[in-house]
Amino acid sequence: MGEVIVITSGKGGVGKTTTTANLGVGLVLAKKKVVLIDADIGLRNLDVVMGLENRIVYDLVDVVEGHCRVKQALIRDKRFENLFLLPAAQTRDKNAVSPEQMKKLSLELKEEYDFILVDCPAGIEQGFRNAIAGADRALIVTTPEVSAVRDADRIIGLLEAAEIKTFHLIINRLRPEMVKRGDMLDIDDILEILAIDLIGVIPDDEKIIISTNRGEQVAANANDSPAGKAYTNIVRRLLGETVPIMDFYQNQSFFSRLKKFIGLGG
């Protein structure tokens, strides 16, 4: 029996879709069978992030409305044969799917796949309610910004109310050099405010944009980028391993520490 994980945030643009795609790739590399569901009906994006936009025939709404079987709508990834995408409908609205339909679909997919990752739309309306309906656990993505952390807090409240008992925080786009000079919320600040367990921290990394431009994921080559490595670490934690959070502030020479003390950055 598989597990359904919803990736959510409240605020838009914090990296839910990128996170969904990278965790999917990471899980497949860990020998799991994975389906990614784009639950953002009307604003689909996971297909382009995955580089599968030209292969869509059927979508999520077609499946729940019975126009096709689930298998017909699943798109196999170009590189990984155990990775599948169920795209969102682009020309419908969020009311085209109900929470009951999502629950039923989740149960069906859990029979055959190890992980079902649901990319949740921004906001807290119907689209959010649909996306979390069948979820066993949730990953909340935030960035070290006031607005994103505030929305994450609201989402945590709504997840608790929906009785999703397992949820963890992912802090995305951390910029260690800004944290060091006191211009960005640090990991501990965010955890103290939200009082929630952390499952990973992704450093801000331009490789994310470069690979997304090509429809590829940094997690496919974990050793080539800090973000790829960080996503792989989250995958290992999801699978039950204990992996320490990367030390983003390491490699400080005496000189850089001196500069830091004087306040010249570093």
Partner: peptide
């Protein structure tokens, strides 16, 4: 204050209100 401290303080206040 460093801007991080300002952010933290503002967040704390806004969340008290939100919650």
């Amino acid at each position: 204050q460093p801007s991080k401290e300002v952010a933290k303080e503002r967040l704390r206040l806004v969340l008290v209100h939100d919650r």
